[in-house]
Simulated scan of single mutants.
Amino acid sequence: MSQPLLDYQDAYLKTLQQAGKSVHTLDAYRRDLAQLAALLPEDAATQPPSRRHFVAALKKLSLQNSHPRSMARKLSTWRQYCGWLVRQGLLQSDPTQNLKAPKAPERLPKAVEQEALNLMLDSDTDRETLQLRDKAIFELMYGSGLRLSEVSGLNLGDIMLEAGWVRVLGKGSKERSVPLGSKSIIALQAYLAYRQAIAGETALFTNRNGRRLGQRQIRNRLRDWAAAQGSTQHLFPHMLRHSYASHILQSSQNIRAVQELLGHSNLSTTQIYTKLDFDHLAKIYDEAHPRAKRKK
């Protein structure tokens, strides 16, 4: 390649523009490529770019305390540009191939404090169908840790009130049974006495028209209910599921049981969705393992 790597960026951006990319996207690509020019080592202007050059650029970003997600986005831009150069015959091989940016830390969903959540759920409910329905939904989401899609997809036959179980169809059509809490059973009984549905509708939770209640409606009802209860948090469905898992784990320290209740295939997924009390686990280890006991 006789010219520096970035001499072709204007031509590349023009192809993106012709492909219908937005002005915002083009500006972002232009900024990322301009930053690459500043990050590449000096010898990148006089020789074909190599993997070493891009590794050096990523290291400089890291030293500048760039967020891993930002670094991943920039690398994606650089990779697409190099791929275009290869396809145009302007670059013999792609120096970014198999190059990976630092992995961004998993973002844990927030849990609601036990006392605050229980106070909201224990508040008086109007004896209107919609309020009774919403109370049953929220009790079920927190009491059994159901996903939004799982709650919306429940049918009447999935609820076994006398036995105290709910049958759930989770991700990948994986079925599991989860215990019903006493508060959930009471709320469901109150709602079912007033449930309205069109002929043939099997959905457990229905809307004003007697049809299955949609996920967006549940999300909006939870948000509005929390605001009406004076919550300072923007409450969304997965916060209830995460609170369920976190509160059980904090009390039982049994992550395998939480894994089963949540319907996770892998334990690593449960570790992401729940707050592990590492101090407690470390204490158990120190007290129980003969090679871990420390001198006092």
Rank of each mutant, 00 (worst) to 15 (best):
P48E: 10
A193F: 02
A11P: 13
I137E: 04
L154W: 14
L91W: 15
S123L: 05
S246V: 08
I255D: 12
L261Y: 00
L130M: 02
K74L: 13
T125Y: 03
S182L: 10
Q250S: 08
G172H: 14
Y194W: 06
K74D: 11
A245W: 06
L63A: 14
Y244W: 05
P68Q: 02
A56W: 13
E150W: 00
T15M: 14
P290C: 05
H289L: 09
R291K: 11
Q92A: 14
E128H: 12
C82E: 06
G181I: 13
S182Q: 11
V112C: 05
R291T: 05
S252G: 14
T269Y: 01
L156R: 07
E139F: 01
M239N: 10
N155H: 12
A45L: 13
R107M: 07
H238S: 01
L249S: 05
H24P: 08
L213R: 09
L249Q: 03
H264R: 08
V112L: 15
A57N: 04
H67I: 03
H67A: 15
L33Y: 05
L91F: 15
D158S: 09
Q80A: 14
N209I: 13
T232M: 04
G153M: 03
S76V: 06
Q271C: 02
I272F: 06
Q250R: 14
S50Y: 02
L213P: 06
R216Q: 09
F205N: 02
G157Q: 07
W84L: 15
T25N: 03
E201I: 03
L222S: 06
S243T: 13
P237A: 05
I248F: 11
G153A: 13
L130F: 01
A72N: 11
P4E: 00
H289R: 05
R221V: 01
A111S: 15
D32K: 06
D134C: 04
T232N: 12
D124R: 10
L204W: 15
S123F: 02
W225I: 01
Y244C: 10
R31C: 07
M1I: 06
S2M: 04
Q80Y: 02
L99R: 01
T129K: 12
H238D: 05
A34N: 14
L99Q: 05
Q259C: 08
A44E: 00
H24R: 08
F278G: 01
W225H: 09
P95V: 01
V112E: 09
T202C: 05
Y273H: 05
A44K: 09
R51L: 07
